[in-house]
Amino acid sequence: MERVELSIPSNPVFERVVRASAAEVGNAIGFSEERVEDLKLAISEAVNNAIDHGNKREAGKLVAVVFEIDGEKLEIRISDQGDGIEQLDTSRHVVEEQNLESGQLRGFGMYLISELVDDLEVSSSHRGTVLTLRLYRRSQL
């Protein structure tokens, strides 16, 4: 198994660092161009969630990202140092007229992640939340 670890401050500008790393990892393990784009977007959403909703952009809190590659899959764990969450809503969330009228223009992130990865797990406690994403090599066939 090969492993890449990153740790970033809770500042959205550093999400771009994780995204660039995800692209390199995806390319290195031979994912298709489209699969790499899916990976970048899923990780971007997960890291932004960790920064905004987990760590609440507190400067002293970090977001840790671990990529683990084995023969079968790429697994990514995104961890924050927040207070934990009740649950994540991965239900279908699309642009709807009533939301446009009420100004609710956000909330697509978890739905996008759930659509773009093969497997998604969440564990949360008062010490933080860990989101685990898995993309299997067979998915690009």
């Binding site: 959205p12 995204r19 977007l41 959403e45 932004n48 956000r106 992130g109 996008l112």
Partner: peptide, 9 residues
Amino acid sequence: SFINSAGIS
């Protein structure tokens, strides 16, 4: 080359 949900908003 990249759009995420913050961009969609």
